[in-house]
Write a protein that binds this DNA or RNA. Structure first.
Lengths: 341, 341
DNA sequence: GACTGGCACTCGAAACTCAGGAGTGCCAAC
DNA sequence: GTTGGCACTCCTGAGTTTCGAGTGCCAGTC
C-alpha cells in the first residue's frame, strides 16, 4: 500500500510536469515514455483512475488524457515539489538590476519589470505601505499665492504629494512658520501616531489662520492613511501573449483584472510574513473570473514585518517550482534593498 | 466629372463608416441599402472599382466586399470627416473627474483612465516634460547618516526624487548649508539653465566637501535632464479584449509595444502644438509591428507650448471622428488644469 | 495480489466535401 | 452616365468521414 501510494504520487507529479510543459492532456503511454516510472502504461492507467477518483486529475472528455485539477496542483505544490532556487548568475542579475534604482518609485518599477521578465508572467507589486514607516520630513511649497504643494517624505523613502488650495493669498511668513512647526511636531513620528500630533499643531495657530491650517492638516491626514496604501504597479502584460490560444479564459479576464487595482489588491492578499509564499490556485483565489488563474505572492519588507506584497498572476498550468523560486528571490532582494535605507 | 468625384467620395465615406461599425467587408448592395446614395448597386460598383484602382479600398479576396486601405482612412480623416465634439454632459464629466486630482501623478493617472474609458482604446499619457518648467524648490533630506534623499519640485508640480549615497557620514550642518545654497542658486531657474548655475554652486564649497557636493550635483543634473522625460502612463489594456477575434494582429503587438516605453514615446511622436491632432494610420506609424494599428495623439500643456503628448492606440478600423474628438477634449481639459497651477 | 498485454470502444481533431450566398465584373440597354 | 441582368468566384458553415490517442476492462503471468 505504501509503495503504491508513492507511485501514485509520482504519477501525479509526472502528469503535472508534463501538462505544464505541453499544455496538452497527458495519456498513460506518453507518460511512461517520458518519465521512467518502471511500470507499464496499464499500471499507470490504474493509478490514474484512482487519482481521478480522488479528485486530483480529470479528463476534458472521455478518451482523452488527464489534466490536473486545482486540487492536483495544490497537492503538487504542497507535497510533491520543492521551490526551485535560482542560479548564482540569476541572483547576481537580480541584485545588480535592482541596485541601479535611483529612488523608491524606481525600485518598484524595476521590481515589476524584473519579476515579469524572470517568471514570464504578469507581475504585480504593491508599493510599501505607509503604516510602519515614520515621517522623515514635511515640506510646504508655494506654487502660486493661493496654491500650496505639500510633500511628505517617509522613512521608507516614499514621497507623497498633495496640492492644497487656499481660500485667500497665503503669507510667505506663515508658510515658513507652518513648515517648521509641522516638522517639529511630526518628524520621527510613526504615521499612525502622526494623526494625533497633527491635532495639537492646529491649536497653536491664531484663529485667523485656522482655515488654511485645517485644509493642510486634512490633506496630510489623507496622505497618512488609506490613499497611499492602494498604489500598485503592474507589468509584463505582454506575457499574456503566450496564452493566445485560450484568449477568452486566460487573457481577457486577466487584462480586465489588471485595470482594477482594487481587485489586484485582493488577489495579492494580506501582506504575509516576508519569505512566506502564498499560492492561490484557480478557484482558490477570491475573484471568480480568474478561476483558471493562479497567484503566487509573498510579502516583502524587513525581516520581521511585511511592508507590502508582490507576486505574479498566471494560468493554473504554470511552472510552480520555478515561479515560486523567482518570486521568493525577488522579494528577498527587494527587502534587502529597502532594509538598507 | 465633379459630380462623379463627389459621389465617389461619398461612397468611400460610407465604406469607412460601415466597416468601422461592422468590421466586415462591405459590398455594393448593403451599401446602397444602408446609406441613401440615390444610385443603384451597379453604379456603386463602378465607383468602387475606381476607388480600388486609386488605392483607397481593397478586397480581402475576390468576390468579397471592400475594406478601406490606410490611404482610404487617411483620405477619410483628412477630407471626409469632421472631428466630433463631445456632448455637454461628457465635457462636464471630464472636467469634474479631472478636477478631483490631488497631485500631478494623480492628474496623469486620471487622464489615462479617462481617455481609455471614453475612447474605449488603449490610452497613453506622457508626463509633462521638465524642459519648460523651472525649479520651485530643492529639498535635501537625511535618510541615514550616509544616505540622502534629494527632492526636486518643479513649477509644473512634478516631484522628482533621487537617492544619493555619500562616501562618509554627512554633517547635518553641511546639509542645511547645502539646502539653502542650492535653493538660492536654483529656485526660479528654468531647468535648462539650472545646469550652469549648479556648476557655480559647487565652487563655493570647501574642497573637503566637494565629493559629496559633486555626487549631489550629478544626481540633480540627472533629474533635470533626460530621465524624467521618458515617464509614461498607460491604461485601458482591457479594451484590447474587444479585438479578441484578431488576436495575433491587433492584440499581441499592442501588448508588446505597451511594455516598451521607448516605443510608445516614438509612437506618440514629438509633442505637437496643443490642439493639433496627429493621426498616424497603420503603416504610417514608426513601428512596423503595429501596421494594423493607428495612433491618435496630441500635445497638451499651455496654449502656446506643448508640455507633453497624450493619445490612444487602436486598430486602424476605429471611429476616427469620435476618437479624435475625445482625445482633443481630454487634452484641452488637462491643459487647462495644468495651466491653472 | 499486483502488474501486464491485449482488445474493443470512445470521441475529439483534422481533413474533406458540398451547397449557399454575397459579391464581383462585364455587357447590353436605357 | 446609369442600370438590370448574368455568369463567375470563392468564402463560410454545415455535415461527413477518417484517424488515432487514449481509455477501461479482462484474462493471464509472476
Amino acid at each position: 500500500m505504501r509503495v503504491l501510494d508513492e507511485r501514485k504520487l509520482d504519477v501525479l507529479r509526472a502528469i503535472v510536469e508534463d501538462y505544464v510543459a505541453t499544455h496538452e492532456p497527458v495519456g498513460s503511454k506518453t507518460l511512461v515514455d517520458r518519465h521512467n516510472l518502471g511500470v507499464s502504461p496499464a499500471t499507470v492507467r490504474n493509478d490514474m483512475a484512482a487519482l481521478e477518483e480522488e479528485g486530483y486529475i480529470t479528463q476534458p472528455h472521455t478518451s482523452a488524457g488527464r489534466i490536473p485539477t486545482d486540487a492536483g496542483y495544490r497537492l503538487f505544490v504542497d507535497k510533491l515539489s520543492t521551490v526551485k532556487t535560482l542560479s548564482p548568475a540569476e541572483k547576481k542579475a537580480i541584485s545588480s538590476f535592482l541596485a541601479g534604482a535611483v529612488d523608491l518609485d524606481d525600485v518598484v518599477r524595476r521590481t515589476v519589470r524584473l519579476l515579469a521578465q524572470i517568471t514570464r508572467q504578469v507581475a504585480i507589486v504593491q508599493y510599501p505601505t505607509l503604516i510602519r514607516s515614520s515621517v522623515r520630513h514635511v515640506e510646504v511649497v508655494t506654487m502660486t499665492p493661493r496654491r500650496l504643494l505639500l510633500v511628505l517624505i517617509t522613512s521608507a523613502g516614499r514621497v507623497e504629494q498633495r496640492i492644497v488650495e487656499a481660500q485667500e493669498e497665503v503669507d510667505e511668513q506663515l508658510i515658513a512658520d507652518l513648515r517648521s512647526r509641522l516638522n517639529t511636531a511630526l518628524t520621527g513620528q510613526r504615521l499612525t501616531d502622526a494623526a494625533t500630533s497633527l491635532a495639537s499643531v492646529t491649536e497653536t495657530f491664531a484663529p485667523s489662520d485656522r482655515p488654511l491650517v485645517a485644509a493642510i492638516v486634512t490633506s496630510l491626514l489623507e496622505a497618512f492613511t488609506v490613499e497611499g496604501e492602494q498604489r500598485i504597479a503592474v507589468g509584463g502584460a505582454a506575457n499574456l501573449t503566450r496564452y493566445g490560444d485560450d484568449f477568452e479564459r486566460n487573457v481577457k479576464p486577466v487584462l480586465e483584472a489588471l485595470e482594477e487595482h482594487v481587485i489586484l489588491l485582493k488577489l495579492l492578499g494580506e501582506a504575509t510574513y516576508p519569505q512566506t509564499l502564498t499560492v492561490r490556485i484557480g478557484h482558490e483565489n477570491p475573484y471568480e473570473e480568474l478561476a483558471t488563474t493562479s497567484v503566487v505572492a509573498t510579502g516583502y519588507g524587513s525581516k520581521s514585518e511585511a511592508l507590502a506584497t508582490l507576486g505574479i498572476v498566471g494560468p493554473t498550468y504554470m511552472d510552480y517550482p520555478s515561479t515560486m523560486g523567482a518570486v521568493r528571490a525577488v522579494a528577498r532582494y527587494v527587502s534587502q534593498l529597502l532594509a538598507d535605507s
